[in-house]
Design a protein around this nucleic acid. Structure first.
Lengths: 343, 343
DNA sequence: CTTGGTCTAGAAACCGGTTACTAGAGATCA
DNA sequence: TGATCTCTAGTAACCGGTTTCTAGACCAAG
């Protein structure tokens, strides 16, 4: 039914080896023959069977990507950039979604590896033993936004520097007069969340009192964590990411709290929605697409057999919008230490 | 390096055929032998090579999904549901993103089909000739939210009924007193946009004057279309989808217009963000996940060789939140025909 | 004119599975 | 007891490519 390489060979009066050589361009074939083969292949509409090719070459031309949650816009831009880069190099991408459950990561990762030549783990929350098993398949693994582990150094790390801009953001808040800051923490096993919290803690040196409230990385979790966080009577709340900030903001609206008049709020990632909330969200812009491109480039090199491929730490920058402002106490001209009462 | 079926066969003292039969469970093998084979396979950590399996079986166990824009949250839930359903049946999903450019759809679709056993086209904007070529590969094609084409009836349609709830929403607006409605239209070649506009036009029978303003389906387009739409001096704006409504809402805020006091606004899809904007968005809830599941079920049947697989039209329902309210003129008690002036 | 090197292209082995075909053992029946 | 049928498991032919190995043609050098 489908046209195979043998049919092309027969029609062109050559061997299958020659057809393969012409189309792959791997070895020299006389120009006339090559041209004739190309003509017949085109006229018959020949398309190599990718499975047969993969089997013979020992490479499938597919890479796997594992993300915690496809529905998070944060991952979309990264995946999209990675996918397009891979496409340009003739690779296809298969995606799996662990649904934010770390126990899913190992089976899904193994499944992806059976199809693919390499694996990109985005924001993995997997345990070291699981990672070790994935690396054990002896295929390239690139980790995006994952804590560099000295004990398993067999994968390349592409990360965003969250610490520096988060710390800068804290300093900005303190300069505006905030003295009581609450951090809505992300998923417990997320390295990025730990980095961000580490940065927030540094605000203590500027004289602020900071505390952390368990939250998560989704809108729903931000919404749910709001009342607990407000109990700490902060003048500024820094959410793990934009989604959590978004949910928090929504709950504030319901509780009659106004942002930034009654409370300042920050996010992280600068997902496309962040600038369209009301008020537009002060946040940190992650170079989402750049991360995807960098991850692919690293993967590409590993696939090409390069030995020492270096990881990257990409910079990100604070974006001040209108969800942050000096606390009301500052405007009132009184003590900068006493903060706004909540409802 | 990797353990193959031959090694398992040798270790168990049987032929490769027997190993294959035991593991695939396709034919009867004596219980003792089967057990021995399973033991050896497990102890050697044998994993069948999916490429070889695919080649031999003539099926890859992969399905392709083509979406206009992965970054649109609208598609995420659908893809996620589809992916998980497929996974449960032992299939993997490869995704491609046409970047909202219809000329990308044919090459990407063809590329996906080379890897996969079937193709799911989500909200395709492709021309009939392109579709005909994709169908020509003689592999199952499922179209999600695409206009049923009588002339190419070789693919199964899974759609959301946009007309009924959109019309209901119009009627709701009219009942609240709106007489001047503007529809922000979606991508020109989108069938769903045409359906939604057809529904909006029906509001004329209730005495409203309606018009359509070109917009699109992204936040940016909604933002950009705002001023033009406001020039029509509507009391209610119905956007093609939630994203456009979101962008529009943001621009209104900048222009000092308050929703719903000065203007009512509706979206479509009920993406997770819709209930968290301020004000929460009146919209239509598309059964996003159900669409994905239904698309997979249809695909699964087609892959299993079923002849007549029926398409589906899924219901969706209006969700009234706070972005709609009676126009100010109604509150003021004066003429219901004269609407709010813009800035 | 012979010899050795280079280059092209075909034959055939391979990649790692699946499965049609077949042989042999054991069961059933006349 | 012999013929036939059933059932298991091995042999070998695929699936559709790639690539090693090799033969033959051609060329230049001795």
């Amino acid at each position: 039914m489908r046209v195979t390489i043998r049919q092309v060979a027969a029609a062109a009066g050559v061997s299958t080896a020659t057809v393969s050589r012409v189309l792959a361009g791997t070895q020299a074939v006389s120009p006339e023959l090559a041209e004739r083969v190309r003509q017949t292949a085109a006229s018959l509409g020949y398309r190599p069977n990718v499975l047969a090719q993969g089997l013979a070459r020992g490479r499938s031309g597919v890479v796997g990507v594992l993300v915690p949650n496809l529905a998070n816009p944060y991952f979309n831009d990264t995946i999209k950039a990675l996918m397009h880069s891979a496409e340009r190099d003739g690779y296809r991408v298969i995606v799996a979604d662990s649904d934010e459950r770390r126990e899913n990561e190992l089976p899904l990762g193994e499944s992806l590896l059976r199809w693919s030549d390499g694996l990109v783990l985005v924001a993995s929350r997997a345990a070291p033993t699981a990672l070790r098993r994935l690396v054990g398949a002896h295929k390239p693994v690139v980790a995006v936004n994952h804590k560099p582990k000295p004990e398993i150094d067999e994968f390349v790390h592409i990360s965003v520097n969250a610490y520096t801009p988060m710390r800068e953001l804290c300093r900005h808040l303190v300069r505006e007069g905030h003295r009581r800051i609450v951090y809505l923490s992300g998923p417990r096993t997320s390295w990025q969340s730990q980095e961000r919290w580490r940065a927030v803690r540094s605000a203590r040196r500027w004289g602020a009192s900071v505390s952390s409230v368990p939250c998560g990385g989704t809108i729903e979790e931000g919404y749910a964590a709001a009342e607990g966080a407000l109990g700490e009577e902060p003048s500024a709340v820094m959410a793990f990411n934009d989604l959590a900030a978004f949910g928090f903001l929504s709950r504030c609206g319901e509780l009659g709290l106004r942002v930034p008049e009654d409370l300042s709020l920050t996010g992280f990632d600068d997902i496309p929605f962040a600038q369209f909330t009301s008020p537009p969200l002060t946040t940190v812009r992650s170079p989402l697409a750049d991360v995807g491109v960098a991850a692919w480039q690293a993967m590409r090199r590993l696939l090409d057999g390069e030995r020492r491929v270096l990881g990257m730490m990409l910079p990100s920058e604070m974006v001040i919008r209108s969800s942050t402002a000096p606390p009301r106490s500052m405007l009132g001209g009184s003590e900068p230490d006493k903060t706004t009462p909540t409802t």
